[in-house]
Write a protein that binds this DNA or RNA. Structure first.
Lengths: 105, 105
DNA sequence: TTGACATGATACCTTTCGGTTTCATAAATG
DNA sequence: CATTTATGAAACCGAAAGGTATCATGTCAA
């Protein structure tokens, strides 16, 4: 699966997008992420795996805990694909890319 | 289904993203879109329906032809969602500073 | 060491997805 | 009118998605 396909697939599920918004504010263990959803920890873990496959989340092991972190570069394949429509979806896309680049500095 | 969910879902399939790139350059009927893919017209029509549901493509009837057009506003829900991560770095930096201050106590 | 805790992993189930086939309908064309 | 052409619509199929339950494993802490 290409990077952009994995990323688009990861973003297609509303639960996964909600997870990303949680991780925007703070790194969380699998159990901590699970607390925010009405489903089993195993289901949340699957979502986190798909987010990881899509490059949107990175994971580091701390003892018996597994901490999930938002990967700021993971959105890049999405933006790259969207940029093909510069002529169409032009100004707003350019503004968003500019804002993100600015944040990285 | 929310607008952003419909749009993200529409973008999740590689065939549908390819259709969008075709429509970037020119409006096409269902049959014309189908010529570019190794699948039946019925399958392509389903994809076009999902793209329409996601607001990414609009359709106008011309006689017995149905012309599909890229909707320049359709990408807006996607960009709106992505913009939640604009301040990602700033927020994380603030959280780090807060954690350091807390440790000092 | 023993028990509790956080995660890994697998089998299983139901629904959705992406595709086909088939038939019906509406419009252009001779 | 008859025929071709473009599309609509429905039933059907295999695979993948999203979820559960269950059990195994590794780690912290008393």
């Amino acid at each position: 699966m290409t990077p952009s396909q994995a990323a688009f697939k990861a973003l297609a599920d509303p639960t996964r997008r909600d997870i990303l918004m949680l991780l925007r504010d703070q790194d969380l263990s699998i159990a901590q992420v699970s607390e925010n959803f009405d489903m089993t920890r195993a289901a949340v873990k699957k979502h986190l795996m798909i987010l990881s496959d899509g490059g949107l989340v990175t994971t580091t092991t701390h003892g018996r805990e597994r901490v999930n972190t938002l990967n700021p570069n993971g959105i890049q394949p999405i933006l790259d694909w969207l940029s093909y429509f510069d002529g169409f979806w032009d100004d707003r896309l350019a503004a968003l890319k500019f804002a993100i680049e600015k944040d990285k500095q």
